[in-house]
């Protein structure tokens, strides 16, 4: 795929990225209201300046062990819906060239179905997440 500007964040021990075009803003963690019956990866709904949005737990969504309520919320625009996504730590915003992204390449411990590409930042690999695929089983449209 072509180069892009990527927001890089950490979820548990994983380095992950989201294309900046899909990121609306970054917010501090906040309390969510549980939604009975919703999938386990959904923490609940949060109030973002009067708008009520679903909050997805990044660790659970990627099959990592859940952790304490620290870190940030990345607000994403996916398929016309705005969704909060919790991450442990936002690290960087940087541009990658197409050369630094490869379509293939597995990272241990991540479902390849939610990986759009694998890229390199400095000496480390990160997974560019496919949020459409990640959120598809969660949001029913």
């Amino acid at each position: 795929m072509a180069g892009a500007r990527i927001l890089v964040f950490r979820i548990a021990e994983l380095l992950c990225g989201a294309e900046v075009t899909a990121v609306r803003e970054i917010l501090p963690r906040q309390e969510a209201t549980r939604v009975p019956g919703a999938p386990g990866a959904v923490t609940g709904i949060i109030n973002v300046r009067g708008q009520l949005l679903p909050l997805v737990d990044g660790r659970r969504a990627l099959g990592q062990s859940p952790a304490a309520d620290r870190g940030s919320i990345v607000l994403l625009e996916v398929d016309g819906q705005t969704v909060g996504f919790t991450v442990d730590e936002v690290l960087d915003l940087f541009a990658v060239s197409a050369d630094d992204l490869s379509d293939s390449g597995d990272l241990p411990g991540v479902d390849p179905g939610v990986v759009r590409a694998v890229g390199r930042r400095g000496g480390e690999s990160f997974v560019l997440l496919d949020f459409d695929a990640l959120l598809d089983p969660i949001i029913s449209v």
């Binding site: 209201t33 009975p36 709904i45 109030n47 009520l52 679903p54 969660i138 029913s140």
Partner: peptide
């Protein structure tokens, strides 16, 4: 509210109470 998979079909929406927290 955004419809979520599996959500119990007994909610008609949500509101925000005075301290800012959403309530179904």
């Amino acid at each position: 509210i955004t419809p979520l998979t599996g959500m119990l079909p007994i909610f008609s929406g949500a509101t925000i109470l005075s301290e800012g927290l959403p309530v179904l």
